[in-house]
């Protein structure tokens, strides 16, 4: 009964996606949009498959992934450690809080020209931009998770003889884990988006660059392919992190 319900919901959910693709096909088939501006979906997807197995395109994906993971990893390390430190220590909190308050709503992409000037046009500036954008969601949700840890949990651990330092790693970090992972998930998708945009603005390789190259030569199909690729990457990475999350949080209720 429940499984039937789920499959009914799935069908309902696939309907709008099917509708979008049908409308897309319809626009081309009935001549509302010329194929040069809006290539038919079948053409785009076959081109996507063709590109995914080509060496040059794989190179572009690799370049994007390197920047994506480097930036994201730095953001996780910085975000989690600053977040925990700010939650655990009032002095650090007093310094970090106002700085975060100012920097969080700042459009990080505006820093990109400055990063280009300081770190050059290679990997460095793009990785730094990804880090800057992914940092705050991770930092804030770590801080939130760590500062809302049940006081009685800490008292219980202290009563059992855990030292203050150990409590940080044995109690606060695991207790804040659900919140940290939520932040990481948001940060990861943001990383995907930002690395692509950075490559579009200025780059010599990567998926974003592939789109810009296609746009300069008005190759509509090749504009769709990198865009779909980065979105697929986002979905896949999101699902992977979801799997990691449900593994790490198997003891938590409704994780």
């Amino acid at each position: 009964m429940t499984s039937r319900l789920i499959s009914a919901n799935l069908l309902l959910g696939l309907a709008p996606i099917a509708l979008v693709i049908a409308a897309w096909q319809g626009l081309v088939s009935f001549g509302f949009a010329p194929a040069t501006l809006l290539p038919p979906p079948g053409y785009v997807f076959s081109r996507l498959l063709q590109q995914l197995v080509s060496w040059t395109f794989q190179q572009e994906i690799a370049a994007t992934l390197v920047r994506l993971f480097a930036g994201f990893a730095i953001a996780v390390v910085l975000g989690v450690s600053i977040g925990i430190a700010a939650a655990a220590n009032p002095a650090i909190n007093a310094v970090v809080r106002p700085i975060v308050r100012v920097l969080a709503p700042l459009p990080k992409v505006a820093l990109y020209p400055a990063l280009l000037l300081l770190l050059g046009f290679g990997h460095g500036s793009k990785i730094a931009l990804v880090t800057a954008d992914a940092l705050f969601p991770i930092l804030l949700s770590t801080y939130y998770g760590a500062s809302t840890v049940e006081q009685k949990l800490i008292w219980s651990a202290m009563a059992a003889g855990t030292s203050r330092y150990e409590i940080l790693f044995r109690v606060i970090l695991p207790a804040a884990m659900p919140s940290i992972l939520t932040g990481c998930r948001i940060g990861l998708v943001i990383s995907c988006i930002v690395v692509f945009l950075a490559e579009m603005i200025t780059s010599t390789d990567g998926l974003g660059h592939a789109l810009v190259t296609a746009a300069r030569t008005f190759q509509a199909v090749d504009m769709f392919v990198p865009l779909i690729t980065i979105s697929l990457l986002g979905l896949i990475l999101n699902a992977l992190l979801g799997a990691v999350r449900s593994y790490l949080l198997r003891g938590f209720p409704e994780a």
Binding site: A33, L37, L38, V189, C192, I193, V194, F196, L197, M200, G208, L211, V212, A215, F218, A220, M223, F224, L227, I230, S231, L233, G234, L235, N238
Partner: peptide, 15 residues
């Protein structure tokens, strides 16, 4: 969700 919205700019410009 994971589509970079600003990246749609060149495509929408085309239309």
């Amino acid at each position: 969700y994971p589509v970079p919205k600003a990246a749609l700019m060149p495509i929408i410009m085309l239309w």
